[in-house]
Each structure stands twice: as structure tokens, then as C-alpha cells.
Design a protein around this nucleic acid. Structure first.
Lengths: 340, 340
DNA sequence: TGACGATGTGTGAACGTGCACACACTAGCG
DNA sequence: CGCTAGTGTGTGCACGTTCACACATCGTCA
């Protein structure tokens, strides 16, 4: 570590007190809005604040108050996914909105590597934030252990299997996947496959389970193509592989819109018409869905609402209103468009 | 404001001192790694830390050290753009990487509304961060004034015209736009138009200037279609408008890949082949460029490097190594693919 | 022997707030 | 006049660190 010079001297409450001819306490009462302050004192202090350019030190305030009015937003994703997954952006904005309403600051923490993980863990336990919203944690994630050990109020978006004692918000992936698959089958498809992804996460595994349930005894494991990431390129590759293995496939459920967009491209290259030859449905109702030609039939995932709900859960825990872990499931309507 | 109960009592350095039978000072020396600590003291303290579960209070440390080892990452974008623009994600990751290297924490601040703007300004001046990277600030942005007034070390990615006294990193938009337009003209196009965007920002205005310069006296203002945002849908709409006004257009420079992707879609709907009937080039070399069919010829914008360079500039200012504002321009090679 | 550097440790004073408490003044009321 | 409630203000302490300084011990060398 190189040495770092201290910052320029800031005006403190003492400077304001001297300037305005009052005591620190009166200024504190004015700033917090609690207690009595006379009109003269108020105007004198306000003038003094402007004159010396006083800004309260959040650090000092946090130290004495033992809280920060800040909530962490922890994104745990391989880099490529953060960029490809439109949900995270919306979840972030939804959480930010909910926190702003009660004047909390959202602090976004990105974990890309193991070193990032340590640093973020230190940050979370260092008292920098009062709580945290965690998105896309994986099973046995070290961050999860940190949150638990430090007893930091937290809400997860989606829940890995080892998270029974933490609050989380999510959608019913099994039911959603079952519903849209059923709807796809209703268009008369006979050989329906799936591009499954991220099977080490609840979202991935549950969507596959829902798909399997909808098909019943028509389920054929050969028609399931698993991939690692919810990405466009993975979708294209998977669709090509699926076509190669089962040329007679006439319906596909892709576990995300990005996957579906990639699959659509692969189908077009292979000369298949959508929806005439192959019916294709996605998941998320992200910008991808409307951007494709034809537009994708998909499941609407209320990403912004998920972020907001998680944030509100964290706030409730901070206030001590919510003591035991809660699970919140949001609605996921099917959006039927032109791709099936 | 509702009242908030204080957090669970944390172990302090005093608890460790009592447990290990040493003084606060020795512990401080061990934690900071400066000064002499005997082997016995070290092991005793380490055992005590584990026993009482001690985590240093970042808040207290920040208060006494007068700095936070955190740098803000300010994103000032309408919501839709944050989601559509792939550059911001890469800039963010690049900055995060550079900061992690020297153990700084990046704090991501999203400004969506005027209220957000106030809150973020309070946050920045509250001593929560030692400096800030600001992306996509607009001209006369209130945040700019705040940074200047509070003398917060800052680096901007791209520079609005009213930013002479601040450091920034960017690319030479004029030269880049000129280069790719020249390259497009070299394919023999005679009626070349442009989809211009965000003309209130330097990036937008400069790309138009470069385009104009490349065309010289062949420039026809009728072939320029200005739009508000760098978005897919804006690109599609603009291309449709351009085709309507000038059906003989045979070359188009779109000011971003997202715009180009939208334009490609509009061209396809209009029955134009790319690149046979119309040559199309974009800007950014983002994921869009490779995702399109045909893949886009474009200008490679080193987004991650921009973020890293901005972060390093902020760090240099914090350390006092860089006292006067600096402008850094990064290279932007033309990437030639199939769309022209 | 005494001075001195190297090694190791303890202590008090900040850092800039918020909060509890003590205190001062006024008006109203019996 | 004494008591109380309402209004307004000042002061000391706490929050949990880091840092400068004082001090202690030991070995070495003039």
C-alpha cells in the first residue's frame, strides 16, 4: 500500500457553531429535525452553513448511530452473464427505487473473482451497509456463509438449496415452466424439446422440472439440451445440437429469452420457419422477446418487482419488523406472441 | 423516518485486547502491518480475534483516517438506456477490476430521477467515497457541479463541453467516425446516410462531425437521421424514416451497434439486402455486432479499458500524484466484418 | 560503563458526530 | 409566590479506531 495524503480539511460542526454563535447541540437538533430550535438560531445556523460550506460527515454520524442507511446490492455473476442477462439490470433498478423511497442508499457490489468475494465479504462485515440484497447466489456460495455469520439483514433474489434460514423472493419456476410448456403443447406440437441452463441453480433446475411435469409420459430426455449459461450464443449452439440429434423436433422451450433468441437464429440458419415448422417459447419477457422476429412467446418475469420486494424485505429486517425468514413468490403471467 | 433499533453488539478492539492480554495499540499494529509485533503477541491476538469474532469497524477507521478506500461509480442514464447500452456494463467491470487491484471498493450509484441526483450528491459529499468515476454525464449536469464544489477526485468517461477543468478518458469520436465512414465509402457506396444519436453529448456530436468530415462535399444533410437514444428501437425507426425519405440510400453509418441492429431489422423488413443493397456499419463492437446476421462492421470501443483508465486516474488524484486535469484518449481500431 | 539502535509495548488524544442530561427562561395557574 | 409544562440551549460522553509519543528491554560497541 502506498501512502495516501489526507483529504482537504472539511468544515465541521464546530466551525458552524463558532460562526453562528451557538453550540454544537443546537446545530445537531436543526440537522436531525428533532427538538426545539428558535427562529433566530435557525437562520443564523443556515447562514453559517452556507458560509463555511458545511457538509455533515456521514462517517462520523454512522459511527455514533451504528448504522449507515445504506444497503448493499451484491451481484455474483461471471462477467459475460452480467452483460447478457437483462434481468439483473431491472432487478437493480427496482431495488434502487424501493430504497430511494425511504432515503436509503444502494451500494452495488460486483463479485467477479475469488478475490472480489473476499473484498466484498470484508465490506459487508465492516459495517458499511445495514443489509444486503443478493442476486444470483449459487449453492454453497461463500457470501451466503458470511451473511449468516455476521447476521446481516439480507434478502436473496432466487434461492439456492442451502438457504432455508434466509429470506428470499422469487417466482414459481416449476409452475411457470409447466404453464408455458402446456400452452406450447396446446398448439399441437408432438416432439417438444428444451434448452435448459444453469442446472446448479434453483431457477434452472425448477424450469426443467416444470417442463418435465407438463410433458408427463411424453417426456423424452433426449430432447433436453443442457447448457451452462443463459446466453445468446449458448442458445444458438444448443439449438444446433438439438436439431442435429432430433431433426423432427417441432417445439422448443428455451429457459430464457436470450437462449431463445440464439435458438431462433440457429433455426433460421437450419432453414426452419418459426412458428410454422417449430414453435419456440422463451422465459423472462425481457427486451429480447420483443426484439426478435417473430416476437417471442414467453413468461413474464417481474424483475423490477423482484428487486423492490427484496429491498423491502431487507428494510423490514433492519427495522426489526421481520424477524423470521420469509419467502415471497411473485406472479408470472404467460405472454403469448408470435413465435409459437 | 421510523425509528430503527441499533444493530447487535459487535466485538471491538477492546474485547480482543482483554482476551489476548495486550493493548489496543499492539492489535492496531498487527492489523495495519506497521510496527513491531512479537510472535507470542501475534498468535495470542489471532486466537482472540477468532474467539470473539472481531471484525474491524470500517466506519471508525474511516473517521480517524479521513478516507474510505472506496470510489463511487456514478451512472447517470435514463433507465432504458442503462439496460440497452452494453458499454456501461463493460466500463463498470473494467473500473472494478482496476480498483480491486489496489484493494479499493467500487460503489455503484445509479441516478434515475432528480431525487436520485440529490441523494447521490449528498452521498458523494458525505465522505463516503474518496473519489468517483462518472459515466455519461450530460452537459450542465448538477453532479458535475457537486464534484467541482466538493473537490472530489473524479474522472469522467466521455466529456460534456462544460468539463474543461476535470479529468476524463474517452476515445477520439471524430477520428473514429471519420475512419469507418471512409472505409464504408471505399466499398463504392454513393448515397451514404447516418443515424446520429445523443447530439447533446460529445460522443453523439463528434461522431456526426467525423461522418461529415469523411464525406466532404458529398455530404447531404437530408441523409442524417437524428434520434434521442442509442437504442435498438430508435435505430429501427430511424432507418425506416431514412428509407422513406431517401429510398436510394446505399450506405448507412449508425452511431452505435444497437442502432445498427435496429436498422438492420428495418432494412430486412423493407426488403433490402445487407451488404449487397445497403452497406451498414455500427459503432462500439459490442455483443450486438457479433449477434447480428450478417455480423456488423464497426469501430471497436475499448469499454473495459476506458473504465480501468478512469479508475486509475481517480486513484492517482487521490494519492496526490495527478494534480492538474488530464485527458486520455484510447485507440479505436476499425473491425471489418460482413455488414458492409 | 554509558550511549545507542533495534525491537516491542502501553497510553492518551484525536476524528466529527448524536444523544442524554442539566439548566435557563417564560407563561399559566392555583 | 411556588409549581409545572413548554421552549430553547449548552456540555460531557460515547462511538471504535489510528497515530504519535513515551517507555521498557536487550544487545552491541566505543
Amino acid at each position: 500500500m502506498t501512502t495516501v495524503p489526507p483529504r482537504r480539511k472539511r468544515a465541521t460542526v464546530h466551525d458552524v457553531a463558532r460562526e453562528a454563535g451557538v453550540s454544537r447541540g443546537t446545530i445537531s437538533r436543526l440537522m436531525t429535525g428533532e427538538g426545539y430550535v428558535s427562529a433566530e438560531a435557525r437562520t443564523a445556523i443556515e447562514a453559517a452553513i452556507r458560509k463555511v460550506g458545511y457538509v455533515p460527515s456521514t462517517t462520523a454520524r454512522n459511527l455514533v448511530r451504528q448504522r449507515t442507511s445504506a444497503v448493499g446490492f451484491v451481484v455474483h455473476e461471471p462477467h459475460s452473464l452480467l452483460l447478457e442477462d437483462p434481468n439483473i439490470g431491472e432487478i437493480l433498478l427496482g431495488a434502487n427505487e424501493a430504497l430511494s423511497e425511504v432515503d436509503y442508499q444502494m451500494v452495488c457490489l460486483v463479485i467477479g473473482s475469488a478475490r472480489d468475494s473476499d473484498r466484498v465479504a470484508r465490506y459487508l462485515r465492516g459495517g458499511f451497509v445495514d443489509g444486503a440484497v443478493v442476486v444470483s447466489a449459487r449453492a454453497h456460495d461463500p457470501i451466503t456463509a458470511v451473511m449468516r455469520a455476521a447476521q446481516i439483514p439480507a434478502a436473496f433474489v432466487g434461492h439456492p438449496p442451502d438457504l432455508e434460514d434466509q429470506s428470499w423472493v422469487g417466482i414459481d419456476n416449476v409452475a411457470s415452466a409447466r404453464d408455458i410448456t402446456t400452452r406450447l403443447l396446446a398448439t399441437g406440437r408432438r416432439r417438444v424439446g428444451m434448452i435448459a441452463a444453469a442446472l446448479d441453480r434453483d431457477s434452472g433446475a425448477d424450469r426443467l422440472a416444470g417442463f418435465t411435469a407438463a410433458l408427463g409420459d411424453r417426456f423424452d430426455p433426449d430432447l433436453v439440451e443442457p447448457v451452462e449459461l443463459y446466453s445468446y450464443s449458448a442458445g444458438a449452439a444448443a439449438m444446433a445440437a438439438l436439431l442435429h440429434r432430433a431433426p423432427d423436433v417441432d417445439g422448443v422451450f428455451a429457459a430464457s429469452d436470450a437462449l431463445a433468441a440464439g435458438a431462433l437464429d440457429a433455426l433460421r440458419r437450419a432453414g426452419r420457419r418459426v412458428p410454422e415448422d417449430v414453435g419456440l417459447v422463451g422465459f423472462d419477457d425481457s427486451a429480447w422477446a420483443r426484439r426478435c422476429t417473430p416476437q417471442l412467446s414467453t413468461v413474464r418475469q417481474p424483475a423490477a418487482d423482484l428487486g423492490a420486494a427484496a429491498a423491502r424485505s431487507v428494510l423490514a429486517q433492519i427495522r426489526g419488523e421481520q424477524t423470521s425468514p420469509a419467502a415471497i413468490l411473485l406472479e408470472t403471467p404467460v405472454v403469448w406472441r408470435d413465435s409459437a
